[in-house]
Design a protein around this nucleic acid. Structure first.
Length: 278
DNA sequence: ACTGGCTCCTGAGGGC
DNA sequence: TGCCCTCAGGAGCCAG
């Protein structure tokens, strides 16, 4: 499931393959993604001038606007020769002038694709997003400031895209473990030091995951069809009842806001003072 | 303003 | 082997 590291991996992977190419045609086999896909004729013959990521969105900058991809939880983008037969769930093709296709596959169709004229940040999906977790401004003090008085679980808090973007369930669980913070603690009760540890943990876990090409649980593959290797570095996610890698206590799992929440009951007993090593 | 619950969807995985 | 059931989750939306 593509979270920030996975989208970053895809962005870096396709950038050298599509930048400078011109769009020859588009094919929408199934427009029924999260929102109906409508690609106007105006994208034809435009050059791809940039590839970047904002939150979990992949942005293909064209000459007069931006193609905004979201991969939901099962989406993938591949570069294939234009003779390649489409497979099941290959919903959209962007045909390039070098004979390659940028092909969007998404079994669960939670993803989306929009065309937006003008600056990408003005698109309604991007306009209200919080800051990037790898930006300099993402600090413990930033989190502490926004958490004042908030009663929701700290895990939900750091997964809120209006606060900080790109942290999905996997990395939220992992970052809280590294910071030594119990996921169920109310956001407003986490100490300033706890948020310092948490901000640091978020940045390091995301950077490590990017370095390893993302996390493949079941179906994530990059543009070459290869999986990511961060799964072997997970401390808590998907490890219910397995021994904690730090203290050997069994990892616990519970449901919080409809999502599986994993934590070590021994390593994560504090409101943030336990993460000194991280 | 906050918060938690619902919803979309398909494939994987478990039980029998 | 096969079928049926449950579950996973990003994030917008909505009700309380």
């Amino acid at each position: 499931m593509p979270e920030l590291p996975e989208v970053e991996t895809i962005s870096r992977g396709i950038a050298p393959l599509v930048t400078g190419k011109r769009i020859k045609a588009t094919v929408v086999r199934n427009p029924r993604l999260r929102w109906p896909v409508e690609l106007p004729q105006t994208v034809i013959d435009q050059q791809i001038v940039s590839v970047c990521r904002r939150a979990k969105y992949l942005l293909l900058g064209l000459e007069t606007g931006t193609l905004i991809f979201h991969l939901g939880m099962s989406g993938s983008l591949r570069i294939v020769p234009e003779t390649t037969e489409p497979k099941k769930h290959d919903h959209v093709d962007i045909l390039l002038d070098d004979g390659q296709i940028l092909r969007l596959n998404d079994p669960r169709r939670f993803g989306s694709l929009h065309w937006h004229e003008g600056e990408p940040e003005t698109h309604w999906l991007l306009a209200k997003l919080g800051i990037e977790p790898l930006a300099e401004t993402f600090t413990g003090a930033y989190l502490k400031g926004l958490a004042r008085g908030r009663r929701l679980a700290v895990k939900s808090f750091i997964m809120d895209g209006k606060i900080v973007v790109g942290i999905g369930n996997i990395y939220a669980n992992e970052a809280l473990f590294r910071a030594g913070i119990r996921p169920s603690v109310r956001a407003g009760r986490v100490s300033a030091l706890g948020y310092d540890h948490l901000a640091y943990a978020v940045r390091t876990v995301l950077r490590e995951a990017i370095r390893m090409g993302g996390t493949t649980l079941r179906d994530f593959v990059n543009q070459d069809g290869n999986p990511g290797y961060f799964k072997q570095s997970l401390y808590v996610y998907d490890r219910a009842d397995l021994p904690c890698r730090r203290c050997t206590a069994p990892i616990k799992v519970l449901k919080s806001a409809q999502r599986a929440t994993y934590f070590c009951p021994k390593c994560q007993r504090t409101q943030g003072f336990g993460g000194d090593k991280w």
